[in-house]
């Protein structure tokens, strides 16, 4: 604590900050990371390699920062903390949230491995796919806020409905991302590309798709926190 202040303040330590605030600040990093991934994808498609390298390095840095936040949340949930939400469900949710960042990083790193020339027809779908993934994580973020209010207040039936809707929205966005992913995968396979490029691009699409899958999983963990 540094300098002693000659005070007795047990009141200040009895109530902990809402653990959901930690979830939100961790997800803030996830959102930032995917938005940089989208910029990096754009730079990749345009063949702006210098900018691409710069952006992927930024992704790696953000992922690391998020890891520190995650560690901090875990370290501050000892046994003696009584939590409204089930602690292991909460930690599961944090792990899924962390997977969002892990896959965003993997997608960026995988892109780095091979410099393809992306046919123009794919460019649009690649960006659209990322757009949907961003929306999915955004919907999840919104769900965290709703569940935080719900777990704390338990005020009205309406609030419960709102939280459920927010989680459903995460599912819907994941489905939309899936649709783009299927189309994109099919088109890549039928494109006139060398097998190595096809393998590389297919894997990128897969990794980006994982991001939305884990946002959806995290949303499901949120749902468990207020299951009756």
């Amino acid at each position: 604590m540094g300098r002693r202040k000659f005070t007795r303040t047990p009141m200040a330590e009895i109530v902990r900050r809402s653990p959901f605030d930690g979830l939100l600040s961790h997800n803030e990093k996830a959102k930032e990371c995917i938005s940089v991934l989208k910029d990096a994808m754009e730079a990749y498609c345009d063949g702006k390699w210098e900018r691409f390298e710069e952006l992927t390095n930024k992704i790696i840095k953000i992922e690391h920062e998020a890891d520190l936040i995650k560690g901090n949340i875990r370290a501050h949930l000892p046994k003696s903390i009584f939590m409204r939400a089930d602690k292991s469900t909460f930690l599961d949710c944090l792990r899924e949230e962390d997977a969002i960042l892990d896959y965003a990083e993997d997608a960026g790193v995988w892109l780095k491995f091979k410099r393809n020339v992306i046919p123009n027809e794919f460019r649009e779908d690649f960006l659209k796919h990322l757009e949907k993934v961003i929306e999915c994580v955004g919907a999840y973020d919104n769900a965290v806020k709703e569940v935080k209010a719900l777990v704390r207040g338990a005020v009205r039936q309406k609030d419960r409905e709102k939280a459920k809707q927010a989680i459903k929205e995460t599912h819907r966005k994941e489905w939309e991302a899936d649709e783009v992913e299927k189309r994109l995968t099919k088109n890549i396979f039928s494109a006139d590309l060398d097998p190595l490029s096809i393998f590389h691009l297919i894997k990128v699409v897969e990794l980006i798709g994982e991001i939305a899958d884990h946002a959806e999983n995290a949303g499901d963990r949120l749902r468990m926190m207020f299951a009756k």
Binding site: I14, I81, M83, R84, A85
Partner: peptide, 13 residues
Amino acid sequence: RGFDAVNFGKVKQ
């Protein structure tokens, strides 16, 4: 249900 988390470690102290 007023708070999300209560520090029972402090209560022990």
